[in-house]
Nucleic acid binder design. Structure first.
Lengths: 141, 141
DNA sequence: GTAGGGTCTATGGTGGCTATAGGGTCAAGG
DNA sequence: CCTTGACCCTATAGCCACCATAGACCCTAC
């Protein structure tokens, strides 16, 4: 027989904060757990498992909506996993796009910074200049 | 003499949406422009310049708070530009951190995906498995 | 004079939380 | 038995950087 856990214990066990646990419940992402006589949430092992799954997905950058989908799918054990595959690949593509966006950004910032001596006056500042309209197209993103 | 612009024209000229222009004004990021008799906003060239500066900063991923700082600094033409330098370097560091976070993320996702045949059942799905607790530490981020 | 576009303010929603107020519960110590 | 302190409860509001909507007003062209 599994001793139920209180919300603070679940928070420690999953790494999800107490407020966030309540927030997920409010969203309907997880079913509300049983309650004690004193109206405390009493989480069982299945709740814990579900929440750890969510935490892992969130660490991997899935949106709550994607997590919802993955949760739904993970319970249909007899269905094909192509949909799971699709969601995950889609997410990877998004992440890869974000990486290349940020790389381009970092390059522009490095170029801008490299031209600043750091001790001149604002009036001559290459950074402010680069941020102002009319800058050379090479520095645009 | 410069003909003043209406908000829609400014939106086109800067690439900032109409609602966002009003939002920036409400935040105090830009001073409210003059008004016409019919209470329409009438932007002058200085307003436009300021807004283009903001747009450029936002494209480069600066937060509105950082933009506020850069705007303030850019008007103090006789001050040293070390602070501008600091803000920009700080931002670059943030971006670089985000890139390496996302790269690690993408690697995990790729590893997870590579093990999925994509046509099996959920019950055997390597992705769901990898998302579940108790997965091998190598797949953790 | 009326039709259409643009503009005005005010309010509410998004995602994914976090913070706060004002109370209730529970176990340990005096 | 009573208090203290840690935990828990709900409800509400705030964060960022916007976007959407409603209902009114303005302005130009036909």
């Amino acid at each position: 027989m599994f001793k139920t856990l209180r919300i603070g214990e679940v928070a420690k066990a999953t790494g999800i904060k107490v407020v966030t646990l309540r927030y997920y419940e409010q969203l309907g992402l997880v079913p509300g757990p049983a309650r004690t006589d004193g109206n405390y949430r009493a989480y069982n092992q299945e709740d814990l498992h579900r929440l750890r799954f969510i935490r892992r997905c969130r660490d991997l950058g899935f949106s709550l909506d994607q997590v919802r989908g993955l949760l739904r799918l993970s319970s249909k054990r007899c269905q094909k996993c192509s949909e799971v595959d699709r969601i995950t690949r889609r997410h990877l593509t998004d992440v890869e796009e974000k990486i290349s966006d940020l790389k381009r950004l970092a390059n522009v910032l490095r170029r801008i910074i490299s031209r600043c001596r750091g001790d001149g006056l604002i009036a001559d500042c290459r950074i402010i200049e680069a941020l102002s309209p009319g800058v050379s197209p090479a520095d645009r993103i």
